[in-house]
Design a protein around this nucleic acid. Structure first.
Length: 370
RNA sequence: GGGUUCGUAGCCUAGCCUGGUAGGGCGAUGGUCUCCAAAACCAUCGAUCGUCGGUUCAAAUCCGAUCGGGCCCA
C-alpha cells in the first residue's frame, strides 16, 4: 500500500485517509461553508464538530433543511453494533446527534443491532451481545437525550415493529446487491444476508424525512437503503458523516472496541486513562527534548492533540494556544498528554455519574412495540 | 441425506505422507532509549496440537468414533 492509499469500508479502515478523495470515491457531498452558515443560521450556533470538519460530509442534508424550513420536521436515527463496551470514538456521532435533537427539537431513534453482532462475530453469543446492548444504551442515555423524544430500539426485542418494514425492504434487495455492497460470499451466514434490511428499517419507522449522523465508514449500508427507499414509496435517508476517530496508537486506523490498549472506554478509571494516554498515545513530538524545543511538535499526527480537537476541547481559543505552543516546541508531548488526561477524566467523571443514573432511566427510553 | 475439506498459543500458521511429547510470524508483557508515544534493540510469557478411545516402547502425526466450522450435491 503506498503512502496515499487508504481503505474505508464498514468492516475495515486502514491508511492515511484523504477525506476529499473519499468524498469523491463515495459520491457524497462536502459540507460547504454555505451549508455551515445555513446550519448556523437555523440553530443559532455553529457546533465545533461542524466548524472543525469533524463532520465533513453529507448526503442530502440540504433537503432535510429545506423541509425543516417549510415546517416539516425530520427525525434522527443512529445506532451501534454492541460487540463490546462503548469507547469515546462512539460518543462523537451520538453527542452530535444530541445537539441536533436539542436544536431542531426532533425525535431520535437509536438502534442496537445485537442480532447483527451475534451473526458477524464468531465468538459472541446472543447473551453477550444483549448484555453489551444494555451497557451501550447506558452510555447513550448518559449523554442527556430527551426522554420524551428518544427511543432505543433493540433488534431482538423490537422485532415485531421492525419486521414488517424489513420485509418490505428485503423484497427489494437481491443477493447480488448485498454481495457487492458488503462483500458477502458463499460462507456468509444467512442472518447477515437478511440483516441489512433490519438496519434499514428504522429509516422508515416514521413517515418523515430521516437524518442519520454516523461514521463515514458506515455509509455503504445506507447507500443500499437510499437505493431502495423510492421503490417502497419512502424518502431516501439523509446522512451526515464524521471522520474516523484515530486509535490511541496512531493515525492509520480507527479506534476499535476490541483493541484494549488503543482505546479509552467510557468505563475506564482515571488511572487507567492516565496510563493508557501516557503509555500508548502516539505523539507528534520530537525524539528528545532538545530537538522538540528547537523543531516543535506536529499536532496533525499527534493523537492527544487530535482528541482535543475532535472531542475534548470545544473552546477554539484554548485549542489554538495548545496548537501554537505545541508547534513551537513550548509545549512538550508529556505536557500535552497531561492536558488531555485531565480533560478526559473530568468528562468521564460526569459521564460515569450520568451513566449510573441511566440505569434508572433506561425503561422510559426503550421502544415499546405496539 | 450424500460427498468433501478443515480444526495446532489471542490471531495466522509449519510439522502430519516418511510416528520419538511442537517451530515460526503477528500480537501481548517487561526492559533499554525518549519530555511521552512511535521506531530500533534486548528479554519474557503463552499451545497438554477440538474431544474420546485404539494401535505402538513412543502419536499433533496412524486407525476408529465423536463434536464443531467451511464448501459442493440432494
Amino acid at each position: 500500500m503506498s503512502a496515499d492509499d487508504f481503505i474505508v469500508t464498514p468492516w475495515h479502515v486502514e491508511g492515511d485517509i484523504d477525506y476529499d478523495k473519499l468524498i469523491k470515491q463515495f459520491g457524497t457531498e462536502k459540507i460547504s461553508s454555505e451549508l455551515l452558515e445555513r446550519i448556523k443560521k437555523i440553530t443559532g450556533e455553529d457546533h465545533f464538530m461542524l466548524r472543525r470538519g469533524i463532520f465533513f460530509s453529507h448526503r442530502e442534508l440540504t433537503r432535510i433543511l429545506d423541509e425543516y424550513e417549510k415546517g416539516n420536521k425530520f427525525f434522527l436515527y443512529t445506532g451501534r453494533g454492541p460487540s463490546g463496551h462503548t469507547h469515546i470514538g462512539h460518543l462523537v456521532p451520538w453527542m452530535f446527534a444530541k445537539w441536533l435533537q436539542d436544536k431542531f427539537d426532533v425525535n431520535m431513534y437509536f438502534q442496537l443491532t445485537d442480532d447483527e453482532k451475534f451473526y458477524s462475530k464468531p465468538n459472541l453469543t446472543l447473551e453477550e451481545t444483549k448484555k453489551f446492548a444494555y451497557e451501550n444504551a447506558l452510555d447513550f442515555i448518559a449523554l442527556g437525550f430527551n426522554p420524551e423524544k428518544t427511543k432505543i430500539i433493540i433488534n431482538t426485542k423490537n422485532i415485531k415493529t421492525l419486521y414488517p418494514i424489513a420485509a418490505e425492504v428485503a423484497k427489494k434487495i437481491n443477493f447480488s446487491n448485498t454481495k457487492a455492497t458488503f462483500g458477502f460470499t458463499n460462507e456468509t451466514n444467512i442472518g447477515m444476508i437478511f440483516y441489512t434490511s433490519l438496519q434499514s428499517a428504522p429509516c422508515f419507522i416514521e413517515d418523515k424525512p430521516v437524518l442519520i449522523p454516523l461514521g463515514v465508514d458506515q455509509d455503504p449500508h445506507f447507500r443500499l437503503t437510499r437505493d431502495i427507499a423510492p421503490k417502497i414509496g419512502k424518502q431516501k435517508p439523509a446522512l451526515i458523516h464524521n471522520i474516523m476517530i484515530p486509535s490511541l496508537e496512531g493515525p492509520g486506523g480507527k479506534m476499535s472496541a476490541s483493541d484494549e490498549k488503543g482505546t479509552i472506554y467510557t468505563t475506564d478509571s482515571p488511572s487507567e486513562v492516565k496510563n493508557k494516554i501516557n503509555k500508548h498515545a502516539f505523539s507528534g513530538g520530537q525524539p528528545d527534548i532538545e530537538q522538540h524545543r528547537k523543531l516543535g511538535g506536529n499536532p496533525d499526527i499527534d493523537v492527544s492533540y487530535q482528541y482535543l480537537r475532535i472531542f475534548f476541547e470545544p473552546d477554539d481559543a484554548k485549542l489554538k494556544i495548545i496548537h501554537e505552543d505545541y508547534k513551537s516546541g513550548k509545549l512538550l508531548s508529556g505536557e500535552l498528554k497531561a492536558i488531555l488526561i485531565e480533560k478526559i477524566n473530568s468528562f468521564l467523571a460526569i459521564h460515569q455519574e450520568n451513566r449510573k443514573k441511566a440505569k434508572n432511566q433506561i425503561e422510559q427510553f426503550l421502544f415499546e412495540d405496539k
